[in-house]
Design a protein around this nucleic acid. Structure first.
Lengths: 209, 209
DNA sequence: GATTTTCCATAGTGATCGATACGAAACCTG
DNA sequence: CAGGTTTCGTATCGATCACTATGGAAAATC
């Protein structure tokens, strides 16, 4: 997604921007936006402040790029689950089970960056908190869209409130993120997801693919 | 719970410590521990720094006292629901519905302080994050205890995994806290809670009080 | 009323925050 | 090689952080 060709010559970079962004992402993921200081970023990224600012403008831009990278590299399970050619219950099952795994990966911080990044923030960082909320709302909206499609196809009862059930599922995912941060294992999160799936209305089985 | 009698005389306080603590609690609730600066506390509490430090030792102690106060004044619904002489499903219903209301009170920050206070933290504030996790775990343990009692009485099937289901319910509550912070209304949270209750195993009805 | 004790208000502590000025070094184009 | 451009490393910048030293004011104790 980035410019493959910079405009012109000059002294070349002495570091890999993607690797540096990756290190920053993990640090933000672990400690959140505001609690991650430039000194910590400097050490984790292996860069000097001018290198960071030259490549990423400022801390806020760096965080936003980390969010994009997180979305592209760590959260693929969500789009996969919701767009897979399977029944709606199966899609939801994949969504929650995918979250269970993504939130407890070895070598990664527990939970979801979109939740841990900045649930509460200082007035100065309100824009960051809003950005994260936008990501969470987008997830909920994507779920709602998949549910609406499922209801139209007959996977779900006509009486189901799509927005309400999407809010439930998004809430469960957010709750799983916190449980993961509190030390829950993959299996525990899978069991939680399985329990949550029991709330799915079971009527209106589909008769086609 | 505080000393009703201070050891000896001297100049009396010119402010109400409880009112000041209340203001601090709401600020921590809104912005979290680390993002709440002393300048903000100073303004919200209407006090000078020496007044704050004389009365509350330091920022960390102030936050811990705010946690205790929050637990005593804002979260009573949980203990009430879990200790009420009602069936286990009814107790769980009251727990989730109480959370829906407590997380969306007018004039109060959205969500739960135990979640918003410090989901992610800097290394220096790790102790605070751990303290909050302890509160969340205590909630989960209290739920598990109530479920175990319900299973023993016959309110729940023998096959139910008490710890797993408690983790589900605690996760739903945490998720509701985030949904509240994202702007969900009381009614939306009530609907979410109602959906979550559908995961309750329905067999094994109790035949006594 | 003198002493003691506590609190008040002003001002400022060192440390850390995010972000930069500066000049030398390294690449591309001529 | 010269000219232009970008990044490099070093050494900070002012602002804000949590916190406190100091000295006088106010109330209880003697």
């Amino acid at each position: 997604m980035e410019n493959p060709e910079k405009p012109r010559g000059g002294r070349p970079r002495a570091f890999d921007p993607d690797a540096a962004l990756d290190a920053a992402m993990h640090l933000f993921w672990e400690h959140g936006y505001e609690a991650t200081s430039l000194a910590m970023l400097r050490e984790a990224m292996g860069l000097t402040p001018p290198q960071i600012y030259n490549a990423f403008t400022d801390k806020e831009t760096l965080f936003r790029k980390a969010l994009t990278r997180y979305h592209e590299t760590e959260i693929g399970f969500a789009l996969e689950a919701l767009s897979a050619p399977v029944s709606t219950p199966e899609a939801i099952r994949r969504l929650l089970m995918g979250a269970a795994e993504a939130y407890t990966r070895l070598g990664k911080p527990g939970g979801c960056l979109f939740v841990s990044g900045a649930l509460a923030a200082s007035p100065q960082a309100q824009a960051i908190a809003d950005e994260l909320r936008t990501y969470r709302k987008a997830n909920e909206a994507a779920i709602a869209q998949r549910l609406a499609k499922g209801r139209a196809v007959g996977d779900l009862p006509e009486t189901l409130c799509v927005e309400g059930f999407a809010k439930y599922l998004a809430g469960v995912m957010n709750g799983m993120s916190i449980q993961a941060r509190d030390g829950a294992s993959v299996d525990e999160l899978r069991a939680l997801a399985q329990t949550a799936l029991a709330a799915l209305p079971a009527e209106g089985q589909n008769q086609g693919a």
